[in-house]
Simulated scan of single mutants.
Amino acid sequence: MSTDRRPVNLRCSALVLREDAVLLCRRADGWVLPGGTPAGDESAAGCARRETLEETGLEVVPVGVAFVLDATNSAAGQYLMEIVFLAHADDKSALPYETEAGLVPEFVPLQRLPDLSLRPPIGKHIQALHRGDDRVAAYLGNVWEPSPLS
């Protein structure tokens, strides 16, 4: 039995699909879904909503959990768990815009995903979800609070 007690880093992101494209943010080292770490007593869905607004200028509403994934980098002693929320943009015609230097958001055609350096490498899962091959899990939020998606 392992006695390794690495801290778990939580990341919450939004998967926003629009027709045959997905909202991604291009960084110098590759592409990511908009997202980040919850602040204070912020819910996971609230974090995904806030981070998407901060990184893309788009207001979104998380409607379910698309994926939960984890990745371990033993060499760096890191453990990451990511909750990827399926989210819909409030304004279906709004375009993302750069709000942070070095982070360029755009709707990327799904057929380009295999050619991108997507971090984490979930391009095939995004395509399967868009085709309807994968189901979205129910998100219950904080069941101790009256508004689970706040």
Rank of each mutant, 00 (worst) to 15 (best):
A44G: 07
A45N: 03
G46S: 14
C47E: 14
C47I: 12
A48E: 04
E51A: 01
T52C: 12
T52A: 01
T52D: 10
T52Y: 11
E54D: 04
E55K: 06
T56F: 01
G57H: 08
L58H: 13
V60D: 01
V61N: 06
P62R: 06
P62E: 11
P62W: 15
P62K: 00
G64I: 01
G64C: 06
V65I: 14
V65L: 14
A66H: 06
L69S: 10
D70N: 12
D70S: 02
D70W: 14
A71F: 12
A71I: 13
A71M: 13
T72G: 10
N73S: 11
S74C: 14
A75D: 14
A76K: 15
Q78E: 11
L80V: 12
V84C: 10
V84I: 12
V84Y: 02
F85Y: 15
F85K: 04
F85W: 14
F85V: 12
L86E: 07
A87Y: 07
H88F: 06
A89S: 11
D90A: 15
D90C: 10
K92V: 12
K92N: 03
K92E: 08
K92W: 03
K92R: 11
A94V: 01
L95K: 00
P96I: 05
P96K: 00
Y97Q: 03
E100F: 06
E100S: 06
G102W: 12
G102S: 02
L103P: 02
L103Y: 09
V104S: 06
V104P: 15
V104Q: 09
V104W: 09
P105Q: 10
F107D: 02
P109T: 05
L110Y: 09
R112D: 03
R112Y: 01
R112K: 01
L113A: 11
D115R: 14
S117I: 13
S117M: 13
P121S: 10
P121N: 03
P121F: 07
I122T: 02
K124V: 10
